[in-house]
């Protein structure tokens, strides 16, 4: 099952104060002059941050810990609204943010939870994803009985079943073994070819291989704070150009 969810409608400001007049189909995400400081912090985390991702697809936020990947994700999803600047997320559906510390309630098995949270008409997609994610045998189990990798897969799966224009996956496949992780990434890319994804990961090989545009964070003391690097956007049905991938990896390392 392939979902074509991405419908280019307008520029949506995450911060209601920063609503824009113009309508455009040009950028999936456009952050302009974002300045943000956590309460009590001496220096701002973002100082005039500019991030642009021009089209839907599978993209990444990359950088060392503490540079602001999660903060930008929370700004994009509307969790943080105490920033200055302008954020435009191009989608008629919500920008969802999921991370690897989420849990499912303990009062029902994983399968029943997924049944209850699956929107009408997506039962077939749910069953397919359960199969692709290697979770079929775990549906009768409680979330607390799962391994960390299994927990992350179940959590990501329930988000994929929701309505979203952009899904930000913050370390969502942490603790998942590499072959399963790759299979899941291929499945996501083939099932949701027109949706927007932002994959936050510290794995440079994976990011270079699977992502189309990679926003590399360089830290608050450097200007510009981010650099955009092209990844290989690899799909299961295409051959992988290893030389190009190595070049992407080098570019990412140099940008950081």
């Amino acid at each position: 099952m392939i979902l074509n969810r991405y419908i280019c409608v307008n520029k949506k400001a995450v911060n209601p104060k920063d609503k824009v007049d113009s309508f455009s189909c040009e950028k999936m995400i456009a952050c302009h002059d974002i300045t943000f400081r956590y309460p009590g912090a001496e220096i701002p985390l973002f100082n005039g941050l500019e991030v642009t991702i021009d089209k839907p697809g599978f993209h990444a936020l990359f950088g060392p810990s503490g540079v602001g990947k999660t903060t930008l994700a929370r700004i994009l999803s509307g969790d943080i609204d105490t920033f200055s600047g302008r954020v435009q997320a191009l989608a008629d559906m919500p920008c969802l943010y999921t991370h690897n510390r989420e849990r499912l309630p303990g009062w029902s098995p994983v399968g029943r939870h997924l049944e209850k949270t699956t929107p009408p008409g997506r039962q077939q997609l749910r069953d397919e994803l359960i199969d692709h994610f290697g979770l079929s045998t775990l549906m009768g189990m409680r979330f607390s009985q799962l391994s960390m990798g299994q927990c992350n897969r179940v959590n990501l799966l329930r988000y994929l079943l929701q309505d979203f224009g952009i899904l930000i996956m913050d370390e969502s496949l942490a603790n998942v073994d590499e072959p399963t992780r790759h299979a899941i990434l291929y499945t996501i890319k083939s099932t949701f070819p027109e949706s927007g994804f932002l994959y936050i990961s510290h794995n440079v090989v994976e990011v270079s291989r699977f992502c189309d545009q990679i926003v590399v964070f360089r830290g608050a003391h450097l200007s510009p704070q981010t650099r955009l690097v092209r990844g290989q956007d690899h799909r299961e049905d295409r051959p992988l150009d290893k030389t190009a991938m190595e070049r992407s990896m080098l570019e990412i390392m140099n940008a950081a």
């Binding site: 999803s77 969802l96 999921t98 989420e102 849990r103 499912l104 949270t117 329930r158 988000y159 929701q162």
Partner: peptide
């Protein structure tokens, strides 16, 4: 938050 987040962002 680690449980409520999903329900909050999906409006449930």
């Amino acid at each position: 938050t680690d449980i409520e987040h999903f329900y909050r962002v999906t409006g449930r």
